[in-house]
């Protein structure tokens, strides 16, 4: 039970990141690798501000700094025409230094004993397991309301169209470079917020805990899509969030029954993504194999009937 509740809480906190990944990978249709860096960035900012006694400001700041990181990647892509994947890697790598600088050169920072978003709510509403889960759900739920509404506004529509057909966006007199940057900014703001929440939840920030986040987020998105199909933006975001929760539950149970050691987590997420992405190609090669077998069988049958016919002819003679 504790296990389930714990993974629910983590799942909803990471769901905010999964939403960010959904925005960049699915809506904007760009592979954004900034995520690993911006997650740690969120952790670092939140930890420093929480340590100095501003837990709520800390979370707001993560949104702001995450957006800056996303914009940086967007500018590299659109202004300097650097390949999207490389742009993300460049910013992610730079952020490693930035994150260390933010934490004053230390690679980790504890906020144990400080007031956080969670402790503040706990003091007011009480802190049983159910309440803690509610606290963890609130940010995800809030974003699940705001972000889909945003994607119905004119700007939101333009961002969606940019991922779908950039040429059409420009032909409609919209600066697609701008919409791309804004989209990446929003995506990374979500990721950083998730990092900030996690750092307050776990009471510490570590500069390397962002590594592999992009794969974990992608795994969540794919789990969601497998369960609910690829549909509109609202359902897409919701299913990515649910995917994140399910991912955490799977991981928790696999760890519990000692299916694999805890350091195997990232390999497992990578495998999930590989399996999910290989689906269509495996299906296709299976289909081709079936056709080939059918053709071969047919050829064999024809050969044998031809043989039989010639024999019959001989007998007639």
């Amino acid at each position: 039970m504790i296990l389930l509740v714990g993974s629910l809480q983590l799942g909803f906190l990471y769901a905010v990141m999964a939403m960010g990944i959904y925005i960049s990978f699915r809506i904007l249709n760009t592979p954004d690798l900034t995520v690993d860096g911006s997650f740690s960035l969120g952790m670092a900012c939140a930890a420093v501000l929480t340590a100095s006694g501003h837990p709520i400001l800390a979370l707001i700041a993560t949104l702001f700094f995450g957006a800056i990181a996303g914009t940086a990647t967007g500018l590299l892509q659109t202004k300097l025409l650097i390949h999207p994947i490389l742009s993300g890697i460049l910013v992610m790598t730079s952020l490693y230094t930035v994150n260390l600088a933010i934490m004053g050169g230390r690679s980790n920072l504890s906020v144990a004993g400080k007031a956080t978003y969670f402790t503040m709510l706990k003091e007011t509403f009480g802190g049983n397991m159910l309440m803690m889960t509610c606290f963890a759900i609130i940010p995800a739920l809030l974003l699940l309301v705001i972000v889909p509404i945003f994607f119905k506004t004119h700007l939101g529509l333009a961002i969606r169209a940019t991922g779908d057909n950039e040429e059409m966006v420009r032909a409609s007199s919209i600066n697609s470079n701008l919409t791309k940057c804004i989209g990446l900014a929003i995506a990374n703001a979500c990721v950083a917020l998730s990092g900030g929440l996690i750092s307050q939840y776990q009471m510490f920030s570590d500069v390397s805990s962002g590594s592999g986040m992009v794969i974990i987020g992608l795994a969540s998105v794919i789990i969601g899509e497998t369960l609910f199909g690829k549909r509109g933006v609202t359902i897409g975001i919701a299913s990515a969030m649910i995917g994140s929760v399910i991912y955490r539950i799977i991981v928790a149970f696999a760890l519990k029954i000692d299916l694999f050691p805890s350091y195997a987590l990232k390999l497992i997420s990578a495998v999930i993504v590989v399996i999910a992405l290989s689906g269509p190609s495996v299906q296709q090669s299976y289909h081709q194999m079936k056709i080939r077998r059918e053709v071969r069988r047919h050829a064999k049958r024809e050969a044998s009937t031809a043989y039989a016919e010639t024999h019959e002819c001989k007998q007639d003679l």
Binding site: A161, D164, M168, I174
Partner: peptide, 23 residues
């Protein structure tokens, strides 16, 4: 080339329309 395939007809039209129309 001229349309966004994963968006609905009305969404495509809205995007083109709002270049001048009041938002």
């Amino acid at each position: 080339k001229g349309t966004a395939p994963n968006m609905t007809i009305e969404e495509n039209l809205a995007l083109a329309f709002t270049r001048k129309a009041k938002r």
